[in-house]
Design a protein around this nucleic acid. Structure first.
Lengths: 204, 204
DNA sequence: TGTACATCAGTGAACGCGCGTTCACTGATGTAC
DNA sequence: TGTACATCAGTGAACGCGCGTTCACTGATGTAC
């Protein structure tokens, strides 16, 4: 049965939403096309009316995930004004490493969610969409950091690495050692706060 | 045909070695029992003479991988003496984030290799072996860091997070943006070096 | 020391199952007249 | 405005394939005598 164009667009979006949720939670390989179509309220056969392949959807999910993260960073950056431009960054660190975020069903950060799959999978399409996303993310994070362009970018890269490593570790330890997982979140939050000019202790 | 006990032990080791290589490279799910038995020079049917299940081998590979990493850290720690105990740590950072290491076929660090799989898979056996390994790794890294126990442990956790995040990112970008991958490695190496007392610039 | 035999790791066919993808079919939609 | 018809997203059975695991069988080993 032919559907109206708005209905078709809605269904496509439902599939992408379901895939975003499931891929973040279980990775690309452990989610089948049938799983995600069922989650979207459809049957598996129709999948190929919307996407060329499962790989194409993986790339699309990557793009959307990074777009969402970058939009959040941009909004934060617009909200915080000089002279305390890094207030936004301090809030971001606390938010990024919150227990609530670690305990979310799927990894909330596209790099934490997909880095492992992307490093190992041979699909150029996904690797390309992912790399494009990381580039945009680092550019957006650099804009929240003080200093000349090169310094800000370097600091952004280091902060991102620390955040991603800490969340990756904390999530991987949820099942096996919850106390250590908490300890990692807290230690890194504390350390990053200490190394960020915090407004209250900055020279007047 | 029955085999001598030494031959059986050799074969078991061959299977574990093959699995270590292949799991690090492609993750647990993308390596089949038949793949790894072939790589070990055997046929797939014999697998269950050595292991209860594929999951049991995954846990065993985790244990071996962490044991190897921790042994390296311990050796380094024994080699470097006060008053420059952190010389070992500086070398470790340079080594951990070297291009050669990033370009190795499989992830050389068990946390970079397995964190994603462990976070998502439901197998308690693997999660347990992994958590045990991370505990030992952080304890060993803490021993290379100056300061009282609590401070050293906190710094070890932060350094580990940064290293793991940077290597994870760099490996995930190899295919999609090699220049950015290099940039991340260099920025984090530089930043970590600057934040580690480096012996030459320490107060006399 | 020599012989008969139970043991058990290795082999490869076979098991049921779930995967990504294809396909003939359906029927509401949107267009042509 | 009303009618006939081409379109095409959704359905669910079916495709070939690879997976983890099982199993009957083989035959060198190590033991009992």
């Amino acid at each position: 049965m032919k559907l109206s164009v708005t209905r078709v667009a809605e269904n496509r979006q439902k599939v992408i939403d379901a895939a975003s949720r499931l891929f973040r939670k279980s990775g690309f390989d452990r989610v089948s096309v049938a799983d995600l179509m069922r989650d979207a309220g459809l049957t598996h056969g129709g999948f190929y009316n919307h996407f060329d392949s499962k790989t194409a959807l993986e790339a699309e999910v990557c793009r959307r995930a990074f777009a969402h993260s970058v939009a959040g960073l941009d909004g934060m950056n617009r909200a915080s004004e000089r002279p305390d431009r890094e207030a936004g960054l301090r809030g971001y660190v606390a938010h990024y490493l919150s227990r609530k975020r670690r305990d979310a069903d799927g990894a909330p950060c596209p790099m934490v969610a997909f880095a492992g799959d992307v490093a190992r999978a041979p699909e150029a399409m996904v690797a390309g969409a992912y790399a494009e996303g990381v580039r945009a993310y680092i550019a957006a994070l650099s804009a929240t950091v003080d200093g000349d362009d090169a310094t800000a970018r370097e600091r952004a890269i280091c902060t991102a690495s620390t955040l991603i490593g800490a969340l990756t570790l904390a999530r991987s330890l949820r099942a096996g050692d919850a106390a250590l997982s908490d300890e990692i979140l807290e230690a890194v939050r504390k350390n990053l706060r200490a190394n960020l000019p915090d407004g209250t202790s900055s020279p007047v």
